[in-house]
Design a protein around this nucleic acid. Sequence first.
DNA 1: GCCGGTCGATGAACCGTTCCAATGCGAGCT
DNA 2: AGCTCGCATTGGAACGGTTCATCGACCGGC
Lengths: 344, 344
Amino acid sequence: MTIRDVARLAGVSLGTVSNVLNSPDLVAPGTRRRVLDAIAATGFVRNTAAHQLRGGRSRTIGVVLLDIANPFFTEMVRGAEHVLREKDYVLMLCSSDESAEREQRYFRALEEHRVDGLLITPVDPELDGVANLVAHGIPTVLLDRDGGEHGLCSASVDDARGAELAAEHLFELGHSVIAFVNGPGTIRQCVDRREGARRATRRARRLRASRLLEIDVAALTVEQGERAAERLLALAPRPTAVMCANDLLALGVLRGLTAAGVAVPEDVALVGYDDVTFASMLSPSLTSVRQPKYELGAAAAELLLQEITSPAHEHRAVRFEPELVVRASSAPATAPPRTATFRG
Amino acid sequence: MTIRDVARLAGVSLGTVSNVLNSPDLVAPGTRRRVLDAIAATGFVRNTAAHQLRGGRSRTIGVVLLDIANPFFTEMVRGAEHVLREKDYVLMLCSSDESAEREQRYFRALEEHRVDGLLITPVDPELDGVANLVAHGIPTVLLDRDGGEHGLCSASVDDARGAELAAEHLFELGHSVIAFVNGPGTIRQCVDRREGARRATRRARRLRASRLLEIDVAALTVEQGERAAERLLALAPRPTAVMCANDLLALGVLRGLTAAGVAVPEDVALVGYDDVTFASMLSPSLTSVRQPKYELGAAAAELLLQEITSPAHEHRAVRFEPELVVRASSAPATAPPRTATFRG
DNA sequence: GCCGGTCGATGAACCGTTCCAATGCGAGCT
DNA sequence: AGCTCGCATTGGAACGGTTCATCGACCGGC
């Protein structure tokens, strides 16, 4: 069913049908009626490819994520989708699964599809793959990465600030020795969060003796958290509070401590990071740092729309503030600290 | 950068460039070299729209989900993506958010984009919106819905069987009175799971006195689970085992029982459904019914590929078996049943 | 009766690629 | 030399819409 079939049925030229579709006010009401009837009768569906070929936009946005099954990313996608569907955009969603080669393949495919813009969580922190796309003039916005230094639009969260909030919270509760169970330095987020925790510690030290004991683990998993709990119990001085680089680690620590007979929050206060869905469902419910995921995606989409519509465009790196959600797992320090509770 | 620019630079006709791209063996090695060099020099990227217009496929699959932020769906998408990316397909992902109107809008957009096929979790169980697409001849496969009765391909899980497994497991552990905390009858899954639980109960009754106490709640949430726990404790005869229509309910029940001083699994055995990530992380770790989500998506994608490539195609409704994952929350019944443990 | 202007409709060019019939050319055969 | 054959390459039509210059009809004014 083409525009030509519609024209024939309505007894007009194909140009007129096109006008009915694109600028209806140019067409006389009677003719317009007849054409619309013919469209309904034929079940005509406009062909985006032809539209696009003649110089129009593709009404398509490419989204390349590290992992499509990760709720953090999908919540961002949801935010982006809600913004973009208002403008009749459709998302082409690709999961690079953290493979640079696969990412490159997808970039290529999206370029061939002539997407109007791209939302990317890049595999390579140096943005090698992305540079190519930008050089080709495809509007691009980074997700969950600061693109400022590369002159790109981006929407990201201040990870240092999040860890700072967590540490600050624990110091303010009266804890003076805090353990920070952190992931490997190869992960940017871990590096940033360490920086934030240290910053808070430096500030706390001005008020009273304060220490941050850093415990690095190999991965951000529950199992690693359980192992970290064992190491925690052997520490001297023994921390009365623990913060973790993410909620899975925190859950592991919680299990490890509970198994060893250490009560949370009575003996040790615990704070996670990410505020995943189940954080609020644990017993005790977990204090955690929430990232504005939906807003992140929505903001990135807005930036992209701006970049698409206005060619001369000032690149902006939007940075969001994380939020500390205080729940039951973090209680004030008992005075004096009940270090005796630990079984070395 | 078009194929014409490449042709000019290489000093050949545009037909030759097309041949280099599509059937390289038709072109003399020397010429091929020159053309490839020219392609590299110009940075030429093939335009899918033009390709598609000329009669090719769009290499695009539309995926319409109820909720893109729901891990159940995204895990399916991951399975589908892994299959489809091997064939150089890109996914157009749309979240209907359970709105029929929005779903319809997306269907329309995907049709205009001339997707080669569709993967759908339909909003309307009667498939009103989908019928239109099928009539237009767009290959369509249903996800997580049985399409057999509508003559459609589909990949779904046998929900009745899952609940049957759960109930069977509890009866086999020696429990004779089981409570089933189920969601509203407007949700297909809840209806099917009820059916399965009843089936298992009928069978258990042949061996010895067995009862299924059905407790219906308004929604599949943690909060509703907690409320259900209160109702559970007031039941007579008192169940020694509880199965739930999903893991959130189970978590709520767990919290409710624990708060009332009832121990799981010592006093009451507990089984969930879905096996969400945190099910294994709870204390006690939750016995649950796992659905082969990834396989579901992958199978749907395979079916779709078949339907796309072979025009005369026998529609198939693939049905997966769920799997019971036994963990710590379900223990054998103590004999005689320690109903005294309950505080009415 | 002629002119200018407006409104509505027309049709051809164009977008970038694919596909196919046609062409050119050299080798091999009679 | 004339012919056929095969290979490499070419040129142009086609895909389905959009855009725009153009055209025709009609009306009012002089």
